[in-house]
């Protein structure tokens, strides 16, 4: 447990982000005690209540799609950890299917690359991808901005957030980030347990935590449950044969590697993996124990036992699944602050 106590002593950082002159300064973003320091460049995008509100409105705004039918929130739904519930690969405008499973939106201020392949390196630029993707929102940023300018509502919201009614790409994207970085999940039973906030874990859950730290945390590391690296966890190369990180870098060494996803709220973010191939956590554990394939660039960690993968008895798999369920953060999933008005 030494790692946990180390996390506990890490400083509580508070970003006081209110605009000058705001009478009742509100804290919009706090670093949980068991989290490392965030990487998002807050100094370039000072947060205000009006900015966060604008970002939330945009996130739920169907004008962002070509036929004004579809918003970000359709594929990133709060009760399911901001994923596209029940879809292996996301369906967008005109019910067109993508090839990737929607990622959960949480703790984004700690990420330095986005999407399964890390194609975008700055949260501020993320919204452009779904807006302009033909199978997601199918629009152009220019049209979206023009549509927003033509409304009564948005020039006023931009004025509240940025001081004038002007709607620019920069303001639009910064408002999005202001909202998205507020999506911090740090109140799961696990968090309260490691922060000594009076929470206990059952013996089964504690056994699962121990096993997880031995067998999974080299990749799903630390308080965020990811080391932010790109790895091949031995999935069978199937379907569209997604090359993952190599799609962006075109490098052999990156073929079939994907960003190690966080496992926070994982019990509600199924189906799992970049293409949503596993419907249950049990199926994921079976994969690590029995299904790991020797494909190009398979991670060395999964080569250590004969027959590949991670040695796990059936009982151990159950214990790990029990532990993973302690990562569900009801406060986060139900927080009204994040929900559309």
């Amino acid at each position: 447990m030494s790692r946990v106590s180390l996390l506990l002593v890490s400083v509580l950082l508070v970003w006081s982000c209110s605009a000058p002159g705001e009478s009742n300064p509100e804290v919009h973003f706090t670093v949980p005690a068991n989290f490392p320091e965030p990487v998002y460049a807050f100094e370039r995008n000072p947060m205000t209540s009006a900015g966060v509100e604008l970002g939330k409105a945009l996130f739920n705004e169907p004008l962002l799609s070509r036929d004004n039918s579809f918003s970000c929130a359709e594929c990133h739904s709060q009760p399911y950890g901001f994923t596209h519930h029940g879809h292996d690969v996301s369906h967008g405008i005109d019910n067109l299917k993508g090839t990737r499973n929607s990622l959960s939106l949480q703790n984004l201020a700690w990420e330095s690359s986005f999407f399964w392949d890390g194609g975008v390196g700055d949260l501020d630029f993320v919204p452009i991808a779904p807006i302009t993707n033909a199978v997601e929102l199918g629009e152009t940023t220019k049209n979206v901005l023009d549509k927003l300018r033509a409304t009564k509502k948005y020039p006023l919201l931009f004025k509240k957030a940025f001081g004038s009614e002007e709607i620019t790409t920069e303001r639009f994207l910064k408002a999005f980030s202001q909202f998205m970085v507020t999506l911090v999940s740090a109140h799961s039973r696990y968090d309260k347990f490691v922060r000594n906030e009076g929470e206990t874990l059952t013996p089964e859950e504690q056994a699962g935590l121990k096993l997880f730290e031995q067998k999974c945390s080299s990749c799903h590391q630390g308080a965020l449950f990811t080391d932010h690296s790109f790895r091949n966890n031995g999935l069978f190369v199937q379907g569209v044969k997604d090359e993952g990180r190599a799609k962006v870098t075109e490098l052999e060494k990156d073929k079939y590697t994907f960003r190690v996803p966080s496992l926070r709220n994982v019990a509600v973010t199924g189906p799992y993996m970049h293409d949503g191939r596993f419907y249950t956590l049990e199926a994921v554990l079976d994969h690590y124990a029995e299904g790991v394939q020797d494909t190009q660039n398979l991670d060395p960690v999964l080569r250590q036992k004969p027959g590949l993968g991670i040695a796990l008895t059936l009982q151990e798999r159950q214990q790990i699944v029990a532990f993973l369920k302690t990562l569900t953060d009801e406060e986060f999933l139900k927080n009204k602050r994040f929900a559309a008005e």
Partner: peptide, 17 residues
């Protein structure tokens, strides 16, 4: 360099920024 200025004649790859 403003991606929001391009419209249909895009000069930006959103998937690799």
């Amino acid at each position: 360099l403003d991606e929001g200025s391009y419209g249909d004649d895009g000069m930006y790859w959103s998937w690799n920024s």
